[in-house]
Design a protein around this nucleic acid. Structure first.
Length: 162
DNA sequence: GCCAACGTTGGC
DNA sequence: GCCAACGTTGGC
């Protein structure tokens, strides 16, 4: 069991979109960075991830999702009309993968970036590192627990509501 | 909108 | 294999 953080630009796909999706479940396509892809590949069914909004204020962790389908070929890499099209990727050996996730609890209110930066014990967390751009990143169990502890009334460890 | 930081590309 | 140029990300 491992923990992760997944970044999304809410103008592309938001936490709200996830809650409105059938089964509160969505695919996570469009990753086009090798390091992030390698993390996608090492995700296992049942792993949990923080859902983070970048770019648009307020940048914050909105909730937790569970990995419900492990990495498989991302079809958008073969679609010339997709913004994620990659002409260099071969169908016989797809370069890019995606996973599927489902909602596993919300933080209310969301835990904002300044709030995370203000938590001394989170120093060294990848998200808070200067210049950090990874859209898929590992989170240590310690970091996971600290973030959960920042919302008394929030979700408990494991992603279930109290 | 700016700009620093980073990843990728391509010439050599 | 180096590295400059370029495009993108993402905080502010």
């Amino acid at each position: 069991m491992h923990y992760w953080l997944m970044k999304t630009d809410p103008d592309v796909y938001s936490w709200r979109d996830l809650l409105a999706a059938p089964g509160r479940r969505t695919t996570w396509e469009g990753v086009r960075n090798f390091q992030a892809r390698n993390f996608l590949r090492s995700m296992r069914e049942g792993d949990l991830a923080f859902w983070y909004h970048s770019v648009t204020m307020p940048q914050a962790i909105y909730g937790v999702v569970r990995i419900v389908r492990e990495a498989y070929a991302d079809p958008t890499q073969f679609d010339p009309t997709s913004r994620y099209f990659d002409p260099a990727s071969q169908e016989s050996s797809p370069r890019w993968v995606m996973v599927e996730v489902e909602e596993a609890g919300a933080f209310e209110p969301a835990i904002t970036l300044p709030e995370l930066r203000g938590e001394v014990r989170l120093e060294g967390m990848e998200l808070l590192r200067r210049g950090s751009r990874l859209s898929i990143q590992p989170v240590t169990e310690r970091e996971w627990d600290i973030v959960l502890s920042m919302r008394e009334s929030g979700i408990t460890k494991g992603g279930k509501r109290p």
